[in-house]
Design a protein around this nucleic acid. Sequence first.
DNA 1: TGCCAGGCCGGGT
DNA 2: ACCCGGCATGGC
Length: 231
Amino acid sequence: MTSPGRRGLGQFYPVLLRHFGQQHWWPAETRWEVVVGAILTQNTAWTNVEKAILNLRRAGALSAPAMEALAEEELARLIRPSGYYNQKAKKLKAFLRFLRLRHGGSLRRMFRIETQQLRRELLAINGIGEETADSILLYGGGHAIFVVDAYTRRILDRHELISAQAPYGEIQQLFQREIPPQAPVYNEFHALLVQVGKHHCLKAAPQCAGCPLEPFPHRESQGVNDGPQRT
DNA sequence: TGCCAGGCCGGGT
DNA sequence: ACCCGGCATGGC
C-alpha cells in the first residue's frame, strides 16, 4: 500500500490544487525568460524582477544574443530594480557564455541533455546554485526535478516533515521519493507551495489560520521552543 | 523605520 | 562540513 509520505506531503498536492487552482507557472513568455527570471529572483521579490524584465524588454535586450551584446554595466543598469544588479549582470553573462560555448547558444539543444548531467553543468556556472539550476531544468526545460525554495523549507518545517536546516538534496529527495517524476506535477506542486508560502507560513508570523494545509499536523510557532510561555 | 523577498559565493573555522 | 558577511532594490 505504500504509505503516502510520512504524513501529508503527497496529500498536500490535491488539497492545494483544489484550494488554489492551476497556477500556470513559470510566469514567463519564453524559455529564455525563465532562465533570466530564475537568476533575477534570487532572494528577491518577484515584483522587482518584473520591473527588471520590463526594462530588458523595452531595451530589446530580452533575447540571448541581444543580451550578450550589451556591456555588463549596461545590463546591470537595466536590471537594477531586481537588486544585487552587479552580481546578477555577471551571472547572466556567465550563463550566456556557457550557453554559447557549450551548446551553440541554443536552449533547445541544451535542454536535450540528460537531467542529472545538465544539472551538473548548470551548477558549474558561477551564480547558479541548486534552486536556480532546478528551476531552469523544471520550468524552462520540462525536466522532472523538484525545486526546493525557502517557502518549501518553511512549510515542511512547520509541518515537522523535515528540519528547515536539512540539506537541499534531502528535501528534494523527500519529494522525489513520494511523488512520481512527472514534470507537470512537480511544476504545479511547487508553484502551489509558493502560493501557500506567500499567504501563510511566513517568516515573521505563522499565519496558520485559513491555510488550506491547516488540517494537517503542524505547529503554530516556528521557534525551537514553543514561543513565549503563556503562563 | 526596519524587515522581508522564490540565493549564491568566497573566505574563515 | 558548516558558518558568516556581502550583495541591493522596492513594498509594506
